[in-house]
Design a protein around this nucleic acid. Structure first.
Lengths: 203, 203
DNA sequence: ACCTGAACACCGTTCAAGT
DNA sequence: ACCTGAACACCGTTCAAGT
């Protein structure tokens, strides 16, 4: 009946996936500052250096975790029409996904992209270009919306901030108010080019 | 002429101020992940435990650094009139100040407030209430604007993001576009109470 | 009051060695 | 191919001891 301190590891194989799962468990339990390869390895009943066969180093693991979150957010967002609704959906999905794991905003801001940034930018901008924005506009607006969302969640996940702010403002409501203000305030043709609206070829 | 490896410390006394200054130097040189008490102590020609007489621990030092940044931002902002202009000034001053030090956004998001949050909230909300907002509105709008600003600067300071995004978008311009959209989109009387606009006492 | 020296527990990472 | 054991450099923190 004693099943502790033995390397049985309940039949689970060690690979990137199981390491990622264990890493998220440690993150939720200890927070971003307490996330260590040693605790991840312990949870997998493995010696720490074993992780290095499947993952380059701790920074790379963090990058993979952040990429996992971005993927999840990307999965449930689309289905909205028009670039404004797409931006709203992107932000809400991102916040929803991030709130699934403790300190995910700080983790994301500590990570660097695993894919080629050009590919990421293309995938994220394409649906907005389709919705009537220029390429530059799409990237610029995305940057603003993502910055707002990640910044907001970072404060929402900060223990001392949350503890106090929660009794002063309603987090979901204030988030929505700010988000709608931001997206609603973004203009379709950029304000700079507002003069040459006379002769654009019909779609 | 040899003036290295000697504990002369050029007449500077060790106190909170000098520790803070040295900590910012280390932050700028090594980044947030490389910020350590040992490097701070080394720069002050002092043994690491000496720092603990003036500062409770590393977390406390980070809190003090973040508070220093907030203070600086608070100093040069005001002078604008109307709550919208005050929010714009707050955001721009915050970004300007943060860009003075490497990784300051991530540092701020890792910190907890040193002052009583009630006092902070009061100081930050008061000028906006004076500008015509309710207390709750003021806090909510501030939260959105600060989240946007810190989130934006976090990405702006992230090396890999910057390296790629810098050639796709203009950082200051996109920041301004998003900021004006956000602040411009916030309504004076909340959208919920948009029905009782008929009889407000003149200013 | 203020700082040093030595120590402790924890960390990321490397590498020879096992299987 | 995949993992262990042992080691290294670095870290935050504590504490007796010096002045």
């Amino acid at each position: 009946m004693r099943q502790e301190s033995k390397p049985l590891r309940e039949g689970s194989k060690l690979d990137r996936g199981s390491i990622l799962a264990a890493a998220f468990e440690v993150l939720d339990a200890e927070g971003f500052d307490g996330l260590s390869l040693r605790l991840v390895a312990e949870r997998l009943r493995v010696q720490t250096p074993a992780l290095y066969w499947h993952v380059e180093n701790k920074a790379s693991l963090i990058n993979l975790m952040a990429a996992t979150i971005s993927e999840m957010a990307n999965r449930d967002k689309d289905r909205a029409r028009g670039w404004r609704n797409k931006l709203l959906a992107l932000s809400r999905a991102l916040r929803r996904t991030m709130l699934l794991h403790r300190d995910s905003a700080r983790l994301s801001l500590a990570a660097s992209p695993v894919e080629d940034p050009r590919v990421i930018a293309e995938r994220i901008a394409a649906p907005l270009v389709e919705g009537g924005l220029s390429h530059r506009q799409a990237l610029s607006y995305c940057a603003s919306v993502i910055a707002y969302t990640v910044g907001w969640v970072a404060y929402e996940q900060s223990q001392p901030m949350h503890k106090f702010l929660a009794q002063m403002i309603d987090f979901p409501e204030s988030f929505e108010t700010g988000l709608r203000a931001l997206v609603g305030g973004l203009t379709n043709p950029p304000a700079v080019a507002a003069r040459n609206v006379k002769s654009s070829p019909g779609p």
